[in-house]
Design a protein around this nucleic acid. Sequence first.
DNA 1: AAAGCGGGGTT
DNA 2: AACCCAGCTTT
Length: 360
Amino acid sequence: MKSYTSDLQIQQFQHDLISWFQKEQRILPWRENADPYRVWVSEIMLQQTRVDTVIPYFLNFMEKFPTVAHLAGADEEQILKAWEGLGYYSRVRNLQTAVKEVHAEYDGVVPADPEKFGELKGVGPYTKGAVMSIAYNIPEPAVDGNVMRVMSRILLIEEDIAKPKTRKVFEEAIRDVISKENPSDFNQALMELGALICTPGKPSCLLCPVREHCKAFGEGRQQELPFKSKKKKQKSLLLAAAVLTDSSGSYWIHKRPSSGLLANLWEFPNCETVSDILPQKEELQLFLHEEYRAAVELQALEGTIQHVFSHLIWNLVLFKGVTDHIPEGSGLIRVTEEEMKQYAFPVSHQKIYQLYQDQM
DNA sequence: AAAGCGGGGTT
DNA sequence: AACCCAGCTTT
């Protein structure tokens, strides 16, 4: 079996790629220095998330939690608030779990050993390679979506990048071609190339520093790659939510379970509505009484909210209601409008809050 | 191997 | 509407 890299001019490829990166790289906050903790935080934030989205979150996060010790000692409520709106909230809970371990087991120093670093919570194959190469200049592959796209074109790899085992094919290829002298710039250059030049839709091949090395470009097939099988579409759910207040204007809110969707975030009380005979308002009223012992008359709010996740769609119908009597320990807590700012809400419930306030 | 897990930008 | 994004964990 002939390897994918056998007819690549590796030295020349490395040089062309790294030289381009050193000249053209964007100025980004996490490139200010190579502090391993800083690099680590940036890599977690950048998982499935665009650079422009991450920048303000990264600056705020580093201000609030500048070191391993700061993050290890923070309250979960604070770190979720710092992540609010960024999505995939288990990322920050796993990050804190891992950082606590680094604080306790490694004296606060991020281990410069891929095997040890890779055992930490939330550190998968990509993050391991990225942090080890960028922070410690260790030649490990860091294969993300960008790298699979770029290398599928350079080496004309036609395997399905949606399949988990395909990542290993790319990791082996990268092990063959990665610069041992400068793995940090090499890995970053591949990702930068994927972001700026070798883009999904119409790659700018005429600006590409490595087009002479690119087999797909040589055959005019760059638009066909990478190959990715389709994923199935989202399920759609019908939900009803209630903005409940007391007579003084404080809100009744609920903390979501510690696992699953939007774990540990706060929300307005709500339920999925499944009946085809009962009005949604009555179904929600029954739920509020069963779940929280809250007897409350609801009024419809104007407008609905659709919220799209990667794997499902919420269609929300909204109500408001006033009650002063909900038992202690019911699962709902009472917070003032001012205190609301301390709690992390998913964007869907921020939309609910916004819509409610617009109608008051 | 497949599914669960957010949110937003691009085309 | 589909696709993509500096993916990882659980089942």
